[in-house]
Amino acid sequence: MTATTAASYEDSQRAAATRHRRVGARNGATGALFAAPFLVLFLVLFLAPLGYAAYLSLFQTKIVGGTTFVGLDNYLKAVQDPLLVRGVVRVATFFVIQVPVMLLLALLFALALDSGLVRLARVVRLGIFVPYAVPSVVASLMWGYLYGPDYGPFAQLSRAFDLPVPRFLSEGWMLGSLANVVTWEFVGYNMIILYAALRAIPGDLYEAAAVDGAGAWRIAWSIKLPALRPALLLALMFSVIGSFQLFNEPNLLQRIAPDVIDSAYTANLYAYTLAFTGQQTNYAAAVSFLLGLVIVIVSYAVLLTANRRRTP
């Protein structure tokens, strides 16, 4: 009796498993079909260019002798190239200075707007976000004119009050001026991400904390900040990518400050110059590839550091 029950149970289990597998297989094929268009384009437009660049980066073209396979020579040349190293160091400096300022401002704004203590909160929130909708080309042109030492409004105001004219476009100030443009563009975007995460915190958590006698600061520190972790991490990842590939802003400010911003000011600007002005396609491919690699490594390093801190 027990044996037959067990047997029939096993049978029914097996039957269910087969049925499940059949349904699963059909579903699986369907799922793959839904994913296929995206995955095919991903392969053709994402992986293929990377593969092609990797391939090109292994060759060198000389006027005499044509194209020859050189192995990793381009990479050896790149890591010793003072212009590239300088460009990478510069964007790394930019990252270390600009990103904390930007994320801290975004965090403060998000907490302030979420606290319910600010009047006109909706207007303020949308107003701070608006620069995100402004193309970086327009933002750079605009700030370029605002920075102008002759006719810019800051220069006009300084002269009106007999103060020294700020030299926003001078060598010493340029990285800060660029950081200001990027901060202006992206604080609002990051603020909205953090604000959305704050809104998603369930209200009973606050009530429970209030019952326990926690004040506003205590709630911000013990409930809001931990809840913001994933959103902050996401914002940080995008900032790594944004900083290290800095191109638009220096490319546009170059026109009004050609003595300060040269064609290798940032790593990406250098790769662009190599490919389109210098016609050094193979070397440019190696430099782009290397730059992408640097960004992926820094991103993972940031991610690992952040995750290790969470689980001591």
């Binding site: 994402f46 990377l50 590939q245 782009s288």
Partner: peptide
Amino acid sequence: AIMVPTTALAIP
């Protein structure tokens, strides 16, 4: 691929 910057991809 989210981490691969679009501008580093532009030249390839």
